[in-house]
Design a protein around this nucleic acid. Sequence first.
DNA 1: ATGAAAGCGCTAACAC
DNA 2: GTGTTAGCGCTTTCAT
Lengths: 343, 343
Amino acid sequence: MAHRSRDPAQIRRGSGVTMAEVGRLAGVSQVTVSRALSSPGKVSPETLQRIQDAIARTGYVPNAVAGALASNKSNLIAALVPSVTNIVYSSMLHAFSDIMWGHGYQIMLSETGFDLDREEKAIATHLSRRPDAILLTGTRHSAGARRMLLNAGIPVVEVWDVSDTPIDCCVGFSHVDAGQAAADFAIEAGYSHAATITASDERAVRRRDAFAVRFGKRSNHPVASVDFSASATLGLGRQALSQLIEQGMEPGTVLFCSSDQFAQGVLIEANARGLSVPRDVAVIGFGDQEFAAMTEPALTSIRIDRQILGQVAANALVDRFSASASLQAVHDVGFELVRRASA
Amino acid sequence: MAHRSRDPAQIRRGSGVTMAEVGRLAGVSQVTVSRALSSPGKVSPETLQRIQDAIARTGYVPNAVAGALASNKSNLIAALVPSVTNIVYSSMLHAFSDIMWGHGYQIMLSETGFDLDREEKAIATHLSRRPDAILLTGTRHSAGARRMLLNAGIPVVEVWDVSDTPIDCCVGFSHVDAGQAAADFAIEAGYSHAATITASDERAVRRRDAFAVRFGKRSNHPVASVDFSASATLGLGRQALSQLIEQGMEPGTVLFCSSDQFAQGVLIEANARGLSVPRDVAVIGFGDQEFAAMTEPALTSIRIDRQILGQVAANALVDRFSASASLQAVHDVGFELVRRASA
DNA sequence: ATGAAAGCGCTAACAC
DNA sequence: GTGTTAGCGCTTTCAT
C-alpha cells in the first residue's frame, strides 16, 4: 500500500473560511452569521437553515481568537499546578476541568514545579492570553505575581491551602491542622517516638513543623526529620527509613510522611529488613492514594477529597462570573485521618 | 487582623493598558513599542529605555489575543490525552510541555476519556483557538475529526501508536508487536497456559488480541480473557484474578495485563489467597510504572519510555514549524520487555 | 429580522 | 530608527 503522508509543503494555515464568506454563500451579511451562531433564535428559520448549510459546505470553523478580541472574553481558564504527574494534583485538575468544560471554558495548563519564579513567569505568560480566570496552587506567590494578578482584575482561585488573605478566593484545608491531627493521633495511639519524612513542598514543610511541635510537646521527645529537596518517590521513602535506622531510631517509632509514596517506600524497606509494621516502625502517609488501602499492611493516611477540591474551585469561579453580591472567599474542604493497619 | 478580600464588584477586566498608551508615555508611537518588545535590537537604546520605564510604570501586559489575530500565530499547542490522572499519559504530557514551553508555546489541554466523540468535540473547540499545532493520543479518530484536522492545515502529531497513514506524523510503538513479544516471552519462559486482563482502551485490545493469537498458536491452548469496560485499577485486577480462578484457571497460568495497575491487583489478590507468584500464577504488566520494580515479587512488565515519547513528539512539531523539506512521518520509539520476578 | 459601521489591540507591510 | 496605514475576523451598537 503506497501511502504518502501529507506533504508539509502543502500545509496552509486555516481553511481561510470566514463568517463573511459563509454569509456570501448564504446570501446574508457577516453579522447575521454571527447571530446565527450565538443566538439562533434571533434569525429566521429559513435564514438559519441557509447559513447552516453554508457552514457545512465550507467546513467553517469559528475563529475564537477574533471573537475573544472583540468581546473581551476568552472562555479560557489558566490552571497552574506544581506537577501533572502527581496524582494529587492531576485528579484535582481533572475534576476542575470537567466542570469548567461543562460551562464552556477551556484550560490552559502550566506546571510550576513548586518554584515561585517559574510560577511568576507562567502567570505573566498566561495573563497575556487574557484568561477569564486563573487557578493557582497554594497561597504563597511572589510579590510580582500578586501584583499582576490583582491588576488583571479576573477571578483567582488558590487551591490546596486556606488563607485569611487570599488574592481573591481559596479552596483547601489547613496544613497546620493536618500536621497537628496526625500528631494527636500518634500520641493517642500510644506512640512515644516520632520522625518525619518530607519532600520539598512548602505545604508539606508546614505539616511537618506542626506535627513536630505538637508531638514534641505531648511526648517530650524530639522529632527527628529526614528532608529531601525533591519530589516524593517510593525509592526515597526506602532510603529515608534506612537513614533513620542508621541514626539509631527507637523501635516503635511512628513516621509521619509527607506523601503516600514515601510511606509505601518505608513499608517496602521495612519488609526487606524483616521489620514488622506497625510494631517495629509505624507509618502515617499523606494523600490516601488508591494504593494506600491495598498495601500490606494497609496504610494509615490523611485523606483529602481531591475531586471535591477541584469541583469547589470550579464552582467558586463560575459563581464569580455571574455574581454581583459578595461571595465566600475561603472554602475549607477539610481532611480526614484514615486509620488502617500501618499505625 | 481585619482583612477584606478583594471586592468582587470592584473586579474590572484588564488594567486597560495598551501599547498605544505605553507609547504615549514614552513619547513614541505604538509600533515602536511593538518593536521594542519583539525585536529590541531595532530600536535605539534610549527609546528602549523610555519604553521599558513606561511598561514598568503602567504594569502593561501584552495582549496575546490581539497579537495572535494580527499575526495568525497563536503560540498555542492543543494537547488531547485520554486522561491526565493516568501517569502514562501525564508523564508524556509533562515531557512534551516542557519542550514546547522552552520553545515559547503554551499548552491547551483536554481529556478525551478514550471516547472518539468527545475527542471530535474537543478538536473542534481547540481548532477555533487557532493553535499552531495539535497533539492527539492514538491513531484512531472519527471521520469528522480527520477532516477538520486536515482542513486546519496545522502540524498534527499522534502519539502512543504508529500508523502507516498518520494524519501528519506519529510517535509511538506497535501494539501488535508488544502483544506478540509478550506471548513469545511467555512461551519461551515455559508457560503453557495464559489469560489476559484488559481495560477499555482500543490499543490495549490490540495488544490483547496479538498476544492471544500468538500464544494460542505456539501453545495450542486457548487464551482466556477478562475484559473491563473501565480504566484499569488495582481493585479490578484483584477481581479479575478471582474471576479467572472461579472459572477454573490452570495452576501456572501466565496473565497478560493491559496495565501495571491490574498486575499489582493480581499480585495482591494472589497474596491474599496464599498463591505463590510466579509458581501458581505468573503476571506480566504493561507500562513499567515506578512501583513495578518495587512490588513483591517485582513485576515483569513492558516498558515504554514516556519521556522520550513526549520529547520526540515535541521535537517533531518544532521541526515542522521550521522545515521546508519533507520530514519523517513515523517515529517508532519501541518498547522493552523488562523481566523481573513475577513471570 | 437584518445590515452598516466601528473598533477590539495588535502585526505587517511600506514609507520616510 | 521610527511612523503611517491597513488589516486580522470577529462582537457590539445602532439603524432600518
